[in-house]
Amino acid sequence: MLIKQLSVFVENQKGKLWEITDILRKGEVDIRALTIADTTDFGILRLIVSDPAKAEYSLKEQGFTVSLTDVIAVQVDDRPGALAAVLDVLNQADISVEYMYAFVSKAEDAACVILRVDDNARALEVLKQNGVRLVSTAY
């Protein structure tokens, strides 16, 4: 129930993001979701893609520092309070969220939220217990 997220180290230089997306284009890898954590000098680009292994290989081959991380993806209804309810479950279980980001799910009226937490196994357990819809693949 975990999905693979690609993390790419990106220096703050003009054209770097284009370079990454261009490598993925050439490898015919589709991007489903992305987010950037940035500092003054560098950023970490996090991606959910159609073929994480291929994306990792292609980027590494071009000299990028890439790692794969297991993250949780949950489906959240498109209404006020839906995300709060999911986070409440984690909060109650004393699980900390390192970062999260959302993307539009293929299902209508729902968003998909990627969660990186400090304890994947326990988070999966409590989310399941509380009837949160887990997404097993972004595709």
Partner: peptide, 15 residues
Amino acid sequence: EMAEGAAFDAVRLIE
């Protein structure tokens, strides 16, 4: 330079 294969998936780890 970081080593190839270095696993820095969070800003916090690099910092």
